[in-house]
């Protein structure tokens, strides 16, 4: 492991962000507009700003269509921003896209795999795309197979793997280049309980290893269980950015569902949003 492994704190206490040192993800007034067929523009991400630090798990929480995926696609350089800026490990997502991708591990719940490749080939392929040396790839595959208990199916074709096994292969793929920053886009969507647990355990492990983790979800429980800090996002705008405890203190609500509704209602007074919708 690299030097990042210095941080081994696993507590979810509410330390001030300064204790984490430099920001690994730094988003400033990020804007993404899509032109619509009917003419005009649609702002999917509207002046979004937040930061995430080493050894910290930050959750982007919002309903479907809130702009979570677009934000993550901007950070992972798949989309180009229409305005504002963002840095990953100090690299600008627009000007230094290649460097950004090298320092980033990306995993989403509905990621597909190349079915005709064997698990080992699949992981090695991405290792090579990240420019990792073959010897290092081999070593890391062995380490990850120990960690995720993958030895048994490492040389099987992916099409014959169970969904849980596939998820492990995806996880291994996302950290083959040992990135300091991990981004998870709805990592548990479409997964069964057992497979979701793998992911949750993995996210905690990333934090343990001192990585900076940003994950998005629309499931309140997941955010409650995992996040050090929650960034509430709605209609492309950030409504709140704080630890769960501070959010509880500020709103006077205990349940995250209620906290969420509180902020959304404040944002759109005329709209009645009930917690049942989530």
């Amino acid at each position: 492991m690299t030097g990042i492994a210095r941080m081994t704190s696993s507590s979810t206490d509410s330390r001030s962000v300064d204790e984490y040192g430099e920001a690994m993800i730094s988003v400033k007034n990020l804007v993404k507009e899509f032109s619509q067929r009917q003419g005009g523009k649609f702002r999917a991400v509207d002046e979004v700003s937040f930061q995430a630090y080493r050894g910290e798990i930050v959750c982007l929480l919002g309903v479907n269509g809130a702009g979570k995926t677009t934000t993550m696609r901007l950070l992972s350089t798949v989309f180009k921003p229409s305005g504002g800026s963002a840095e990953i490990c100090g690299y600008d997502i627009h000007r230094e896209a290649q460097k950004v991708r090298e320092n980033l591990g990306f995993l989403s719940g509905d990621t597909g795999l190349y079915n005709r490749l064997r698990a080992r080939e699949f992981i090695r392929y991405f290792g090579r795309l990240y420019g990792t040396e073959d010897a290092v790839i081999t070593r890391r595959i062995r380490e990850m197979a120990d960690l995720l208990d993958m030895h048994e199916f490492l040389d099987r074709k992916i099409e014959f793997l169970s969904s849980g096994m596939k998820q492990k292969v995806s996880i291994a793929r996302s950290i083959i280049h040992d990135p300091p920053v991990m981004i998870f886009d709805e990592p548990t969507s479409g997964l069964d309980i057992l497979t979701s647990r793998n992911i949750v355990a993995f996210i905690r492990d990333c934090k343990k290893r001192g990585k900076c983790v940003l994950f998005s979800t629309h499931i309140m429980r997941e955010a409650e269980r995992l996040a050090d800090r929650i960034v509430l996002i709605h209609k492309g705008k950030v409504l709140a950015d704080d630890t769960l405890e501070n959010l509880r203190l500020n709103t006077g609500q205990t349940d995250l569902d209620d906290i969420f509704v509180y902020f959304v209602n404040r944002f759109t007074d005329d709209m009645e949003v009930t917690a049942d919708e989530f």
């Binding site: 290649q98 991708r101 980033l104 990306f106 990621t111 597909g112 795999l113 991405f126 990240y130």
Partner: peptide, 17 residues
């Protein structure tokens, strides 16, 4: 095919231009 199998985004976020 990559779009259909949802592997394209994985490829795009990897460090390949």
């Amino acid at each position: 095919g990559e779009k259909e199998r949802k592997t394209l985004e994985t490829l795009l976020v990897s460090a390949v231009a």
